[in-house]
Simulated assay, not measured.
Amino acid sequence: MNNYIVHETAIIDDGAEIGAESRIWHWVHVCGGAKIGKSVSLGQNVFVGNKVVIGDNCKIQNNVSVYDNVTLAEGVFCGPSMVFTNVHNPRSLINRKNEYRDTYVGRGVTLGANCTIVCGVNIGEFAFVGAGAVVTTNVKPFALMVGVPAKLVGWMSEYGEQLDLPLEGYAECTCAHTGTTYRLVDGSIFQGLK
């Protein structure tokens, strides 16, 4: 007996590892090599490949395909119809399955609706990728990325609010919701104590 919920239309291939209290909704397909953590929600029409790791408490909205070589750390949010790639320069007439690039999405990251994450990038913890953005390079922790290609336009708190900090230099601010202090030093965010 499973300790997670699976809709009758979903397909779970033999060998897939799925954590307790996860919810797998309509027309989802999970391949046999996938490793899915606890309390994960897979929305309607989600595909999860064989060489995929999904951490605890991730939420993957409708119409998202998580292809091989993608790793999602704990608490990642994938907005509706966002896209992962696994080959950098695909061609239908050339088999490049041996050229898949690893993509790592850090703890607490938000990936907005219809954004694209080009394979081979690392996205730092609690970064926020805006809807429709196309990420082609590594993303710093707490970064707010928007546009095509995605560019750094600000910083986000762990709580999910934009921080009042410049893009570069040295500065500090406090999250109004949590009281946590954030420090910007040489283009990187450091989270302080409450």
Score class of each variant (00 low, 15 high):
V48R: 01
V48W: 02
N50D: 14
N50I: 04
K51D: 11
D56N: 14
C58I: 04
C58M: 08
I60V: 15
I60P: 01
Q61W: 14
N62I: 06
N63Q: 09
S65L: 05
V66H: 02
T71I: 15
L72I: 01
G75P: 03
V76Y: 03
C78D: 07
C78I: 02
G79V: 04
P80K: 00
M82I: 10
V83W: 07
P90F: 10
P90E: 13
N95G: 07
N95S: 09
N95H: 09
K97P: 03
Y100F: 13
D102Q: 13
D102M: 09
Y104A: 07
L111D: 13
G112P: 02
G112A: 11
N114V: 04
N114C: 12
I117R: 03
V118Y: 08
V121I: 12
N122Y: 14
I123Y: 11
E125L: 04
F126S: 00
V129K: 06
A133G: 11
V134C: 08
V139H: 00
P141L: 10
A143P: 00
L144I: 14
L144M: 12
L144T: 05
M145P: 01
V146I: 00
G147S: 09
G147E: 11
P149Q: 10
A150S: 08
L152P: 01
V153T: 05
G154S: 06
W155G: 02
W155C: 05
M156K: 08
M156H: 03
S157F: 07
E158H: 14
G160C: 06
E161L: 07
P166R: 08
P166N: 09
E172T: 11
C173L: 09
C173S: 10
T174V: 13
T178Y: 03
G179F: 03
